[in-house]
C-alpha cells in the first residue's frame, strides 16, 4: 500500500506541475455540453436526456485520461524501473486506479456546475447527494476498467485506437446503469432517494471488475 501511495503521489505531482490531463478534460466536457446544446437544439434538458448527456460527456472526457494514463511510464521508462523494484505489482494497479478516479472527480468538480449552468433543469438542489453518489460509483467503475484497458493499450502499436474500442463496450453496462439511475433524479422537483436497483448494479459491476482486474493485472506488467 505504501508503494501504491508513492506512485499515486508521483502521478498527482506530475499532473499538478504539467496540468496536462485534467484541464483538457474540463475543456472537452464543456465543449461537449455546447455541442449537445446545438446538436439537440434545447436550452435545458430533463430526465433521461439530461442523464444521458451528462453520462456520455463524462465518459468521453474520461477517455482522454484513460489514453494518457500509462503513456509517461512507457515513454520515460517508468515500467522498467517499477519492474526492477522489489515491490508488489498490484500496487501499480491501485495507484493508477486512484489517480484516474481523482482525475475523474476533478473533472466533475468543474463539469457538474457547468452542466447545471448550461443545460440542467432548474431547482435540482434536493437530488444533488444522490447524483453525487451515482457519479462516485460510476467513476470507480470507469477508473477500474480504464486502468485495465489503458495497461493493455499502452503496449500496442495503435494504442490511441485500442483504448477506446476496448474500453467503450466494457463500460457500456456502467453507462446504462448510470444513465438510467440518474434519469429520475434530473427532473424538476425530484426527490432525494436514488433508484436502489441501479445503485446495486453499479456496485456489483465495480466489484466484479475490480476483482478481475486485481487478479489479472500482474500479467500485463511482465516483460
Amino acid at each position: 500500500m505504501r508503494t501504491a501511495a508513492t506512485i499515486l503521489r508521483k502521478d498527482l505531482r506530475v499532473e499538478l506541475r504539467t496540468l496536462e490531463t485534467v484541464p483538457s478534460m474540463w475543456l472537452l466536457a464543456i465543449t461537449t455540453f455546447v455541442i449537445f446544446h446545438f446538436g439537440l437544439g434545447r436550452d435545458t434538458l430533463r430526465g433521461q436526456l439530461a442523464a444521458g448527456v451528462l453520462t456520455v460527456t463524462l465518459l468521453f472526457a474520461g477517455m482522454l485520461a484513460i489514453n494518457r494514463l500509462f503513456v509517461a511510464e512507457r515513454e520515460q521508462g517508468g515500467f522498467d524501473a517499477f519492474l526492477l523494484a522489489p515491490v508488489d505489482r498490484t500496487a501499480m494497479f491501485f495507484a493508477k486506479t486512484g489517480a484516474l478516479f481523482l482525475f475523474l472527480v476533478a473533472t466533475e468538480v468543474v463539469a457538474l456546475p457547468a452542466f447545471a449552468l448550461l443545460l440542467a433543469p432548474p431547482s435540482l438542489g434536493s437530488s444533488l447527494p444522490a447524483v453525487l453518489l451515482f457519479l462516485a460509483l460510476a467513476d470507480l467503475g470507469v477508473a477500474v476498467i480504464g486502468t485495465f484497458v489503458s495497461a493493455i493499450a499502452v503496449h500496442t502499436r495503435a494504442r490511441d485506437l485500442i483504448g477506446p474500442i476496448l474500453g467503450l463496450p466494457l463500460l457500456l453496462p456502467a453507462l446504462i446503469a448510470t444513465a438510467r439511475g440518474l434519469a429520475p433524479l434530473l427532473v424538476p422537483g425530484a426527490g432525494g432517494s436514488p433508484p436502489a436497483k441501479w445503485l446495486a448494479v453499479l456496485a456489483l459491476y465495480d466489484l466484479v471488475n475490480a476483482l478481475l482486474a486485481v487478479g489479472l493485472f500482474d500479467f500485463l506488467l511482465e516483460e
Partner: peptide, 30 residues
C-alpha cells in the same frame, strides 16, 4: 485488432488471454 497491434507473439498471447478472461466474465454481467 488487439492481437494484431501487438507484435511480440508471447506478449500478444498473454494480453489476448487477459482480455479473453475479462470479456468472458463480461458476457453474463452485460
Amino acid at each position: 485488432p488487439l492481437r494484431f497491434s501487438i507484435e511480440d507473439p508471447e506478449r500478444q498471447a498473454r494480453y489476448a488471454a487477459v482480455f479473453a478472461v475479462v470479456a468472458g466474465a463480461f458476457v453474463p454481467i452485460n
